[in-house]
């Protein structure tokens, strides 16, 4: 890793901690500003020769966009009506941006599926009907076939878990989320959550997974009852 990239990554890690702290205190705009500033610095570094080829910088960018998407999403949950929809749309846009970087990293040690999954869950939150193959009701890239994307995502995460992400708790969270969304039967998704628990993940991993699944359960409980069961199971572990 180049010295420029190393320095940048330290700043990014610090910015993420600061943004997370602001987000937890519901200082939404402060958190978003911190993340946007860090994204600006990282993008400038990517544009700059010194760090342009460094995969870890792209991974950091994907991660920052993921965090930005998550902040918009949480803000959306706290907001009423149209505002909520607008924030959730911002959230999907951030995940889509992050996915752009994430896709370049497939097969590398920095590979992740966070943005890939959340750009799909974001669309489900906007319109749970997409799970039944129905048309998209607005939001960015409304032509996206959610069910097909879920199948593709599952295949990718599975391969990663079989290889270099076998002990990465986030990979199990992503796979469980996909499986719980992909089919009405909850068996596979709940089994994957057991795999996650066997890794004895830290508390913030469980809290974050609940924060992902709970709104999905509220939006799509009818089509995907396993989501409710999964949230209950994770809550018992806290």
């Amino acid at each position: 890793m180049s010295e420029v990239a190393d320095r940048l990554l330290r700043r990014v890690i610090s910015a993420k901690a600061l943004a997370t702290s602001a987000r937890d205190e519901e200082e939404w705009q402060e958190s978003i500003d911190i993340l946007r500033d860090a994204i600006g610095q990282a993008r400038a570094a990517v544009a700059n020769e010194a760090a342009s080829t460094d995969e870890s910088v792209k991974a950091a960018l994907a991660d920052l966009y993921g965090l930005l998407g998550g902040t918009w999403r949480r803000r959306g949950f706290k907001a009423p009506g149209a505002e909520r929809r607008s924030y959730l749309t911002n959230s999907i846009e951030a995940y889509d941006e992050g996915f752009g970087y994430e896709r370049d990293l497939e097969g590398t040690k920095d590979a992740s599926t966070y943005n890939r999954i959340n750009r799909l869950t974001g669309r489900v939150l906007l319109d749970a009907g997409t799970l039944s193959g129905g048309p998209h009701s607005g939001g960015p890239d409304s032509g996206l076939d959610i069910r097909r994307e879920l199948v593709e995502a599952e295949s990718i995460v599975r391969t990663q878990i079989e290889t270099f992400r076998q002990r990465d708790p986030w990979a199990y969270c992503d796979l469980a989320t996909i499986q719980l969304l992909a089919e009405p039967a909850s068996g596979r998704g709940l089994a994957t959550l057991q795999g996650l628990l066997r890794l004895r993940p830290q508390r913030f991993v469980l809290e974050s997974t609940i924060a992902t699944l709970e709104p999905l359960a509220e939006a799509a409980a009818e089509q995907r009852p396993g989501l409710v069961e999964a949230v209950a199971q994770l809550r018992r572990e806290l």
Binding site: L9, S112, Q202
Partner: peptide
């Protein structure tokens, strides 16, 4: 790890 939020995998043996 350098970034425990992004990569919370435990590297220390028997940390389970």
């Amino acid at each position: 790890g350098a970034d425990p939020i992004r990569l919370p995998e435990r590297m220390i043996l028997f940390a389970g």
